[in-house]
Design a binder for these strands. Sequence first.
DNA 1: GTCTATAGAAGGATAGAC
DNA 2: GTCTATCCTTCTATAGAC
Lengths: 204, 204
Amino acid sequence: MARKTGSSGEKTARDLQIAATKLFARHGYAAVSMRQIAAEIGVQAGALYLYTPDKQSLLFDLMHRHMQELLDAWQEESKLLPDDPKSQLVGFVRFHIRFHLKRVDEVFIAYMELRNLSDSNFASITSQRQAYENHLKAILKSGVESGKFNLADPKLATYSIIAMLTGINTWFRDEGRLASTSVEDIYLDMVLGIVCCKSRQQPD
Amino acid sequence: MARKTGSSGEKTARDLQIAATKLFARHGYAAVSMRQIAAEIGVQAGALYLYTPDKQSLLFDLMHRHMQELLDAWQEESKLLPDDPKSQLVGFVRFHIRFHLKRVDEVFIAYMELRNLSDSNFASITSQRQAYENHLKAILKSGVESGKFNLADPKLATYSIIAMLTGINTWFRDEGRLASTSVEDIYLDMVLGIVCCKSRQQPD
DNA sequence: GTCTATAGAAGGATAGAC
DNA sequence: GTCTATCCTTCTATAGAC
């Protein structure tokens, strides 16, 4: 991302990121014009091209940075966790919910705008996403191998868990009936239901 | 949806629906032009306006019809199911997966293009979606009340289950390693894990 | 029922003044 | 570093010929 080292330009560069994130999340990449973004930060459209080579880079940089921060944050978080699968799964679920609820716009964009990436940019984001999913898959697999988890298919369980956790973003509101910590508890309970239930204690 | 009753027009009207569905799913509503749609069905852009008043109606009709077919199909399916919560849940899960895997494009659009609906159209689709979710929520609630299911929060469980089931659409491929019936079985197992597990048989 | 032609608005991106 | 002005393309939607 081209960025000047001047003084006022630093702020504009930051403003651009923030405005693009907000508008892309609200209206969608394709529906937002460079003029709209410029207006949001109080600048003329032409000035934007001092900070980004084009609109596509604006989207890609946004998504790439978000995914990298996600990967880095998990790297840090996982260091603090005990080595057993159960602790790691609990840690992952809480981490995922907390991280994603703090960045609703970025998460939304990262899921909705994959279509609008160029081929090479798409490949790049996809590989980051896969790296993240692999962390969870590894936890589930080690749980299965050590006999702690009961799972027919760790890969599908990975997809399921990530889908249900990320789905929280679509309905959660800070002013809602549940605090985010309660949400964490409830979802944790459901995730543990998915992985455990040795021999499936079904309601007959 | 404006539609003439002539002969050749009938086919064009159908082609329009199909082309719009395909292109909206592939590139997104905002990124697809009326010219593109016209080209897809071998007609000039102006001719499209014989079949739709505008682009927005094209999107709305698509989504509205899809949601109505979903609701109707479940109505039919649920008639055939025994009255107990477990049978209904099993029926719902299998129905949801089967229905959604048969209409990948429509499902994708129904989730991704909510932003691009006008206010009143958005309200209309949202109410249909809620009606569908309510069917599952009712099943879960009756299961909890009769003591068959163990769930901290039926509403969140509804969101979770729908999110994880619909997520199948993002990775499932007909040529993949799993047949759709195996997928049904595996997901059913996980859903039952969520609702059952009396006193949560956790991996200690 | 479909075409061509076009109105009128908006888009991304660049050039050059300040 | 930002603005104004502008090029060129593309868009939705309509009018009128066939």
